[in-house]
Design a protein around this nucleic acid. Structure first.
Length: 286
DNA sequence: TAGATTGTTACCGT
DNA sequence: CACGGTAACAATCT
């Protein structure tokens, strides 16, 4: 679920936690720690200090502490909780859990045993909790454990952030070695080293808005098409951040068998790109 | 039940 | 080196 729009929501939520004294770090499930990151090192980095900034680069949330940075990657199902407030309204595959506020309360700060419990109740899937002196906390919840917490994340491995990408930067994203047609447009946009923040749903929505096929070789766009992509990228990201979810685009509700294009009624087509399920309108995305 | 799911990484092949 | 395909990770839902 977390693509750029969700993580931007998490970032804003995390700003609530800035400046408070950190009194403890509870690792409920060590599988959420990146290789080389230990509970001990996390505590040494954070306990007794305060967070001074919450930044985002693509889908990476960076919490800057007085002694250095802690990075949070949210994988497919990661959610940030601060003071009992969730960073998003709901999970796409919500199911029983998420009616909201009551979750993440006492149980989130509780024992790791909550992870193994049955299908009901709040505070499941709490993997990491940063506790503050005021009794509140910041927690990473993650149903599947694809999310990771990492000390000193390598931000430079990521391309420029998709939100605010300039027209010149987009040309760099689309650039190929001249004789090469380049990979599929969607594959290139999903490449976090080229541009950071675009995931499967957002990319499909952006291409839908731009009227471009996900299968176009990324080096084949005319200047006018690249212009269209740049403007669709900017407007779609702003819109999704504002709405607060990658799944809240114009065409997201039609990514299923039998779905039709909201623009022209054409049957939506499904293709695989980079192993990702890709839905697009063959009539107006060319 | 088989197949699907918003992300990242590793590996193998061309 | 660039790129595609696949699997793995884990849990859940249709």
């Amino acid at each position: 679920m977390p693509e750029l729009p969700e993580v931007e929501g998490y970032r804003r939520l995390a700003e609530r936690a800035l400046g408070r004294e950190i009194t403890g770090v509870d690792v409920h499930d060590p599988r959420c720690l990146a290789a080389g990151t230990t509970p001990k090192a996390l505590r040494a980095r954070l306990v007794g200090t305060r967070l001074v900034a919450a930044r985002r680069r693509g889908k990476l949330l960076v919490l800057d502490g007085c002694r250095g940075a802690v990075g949070l990657r949210f994988g497919m199902t990661g959610i940030l909780v601060v003071d009992g407030r969730r960073g998003v309204d709901r999970l796409l595959y919500a199911g029983a859990e998420d009616t909201g506020a009551e979750d993440a309360g006492a149980e989130d700060t509780g024992a790791a045993a909550t992870n193994a419990r049955g299908p009901r109740g709040a505070g499941r899937w709490s993997r990491l909790v940063i506790r503050f002196a005021d009794g509140e906390y910041l927690a990473l919840k993650d149903q599947r454990i694809f999310g990771r917490v990492v000390l000193d994340p390598d931000e430079e491995a990521l391309g420029p952030d998709a939100l605010g990408l300039t027209r010149a930067q987009l040309d760099q994203v689309l650039a190929t070695r001249p004789p090469r047609p380049g990979p599929a447009l969607k594959a290139r946009l999903l490449d976090q080293a080229k541009v950071a923040g675009l995931g499967n749903l957002v990319t499909d929505e952006v291409l839908f808005q731009a009227g471009l096929s996900p299968l176009r070789p990324c080096g084949s766009l005319t200047k006018a098409e690249a212009d269209r992509l740049a403007s669709a990228l900017a407007s779609t990201l702003l819109d999704l951040v504002h709405r607060g979810g990658s799944h809240l685009g114009e065409m997201t509700g039609q990514r299923h068998p039998g779905g039709t294009c909201p623009r022209d009624g054409t049957a939506m087509e499904r293709t695989m790109v980079n192993g990702r399920s890709t839905w697009w309108c063959p009539a107006h995305q060319v």
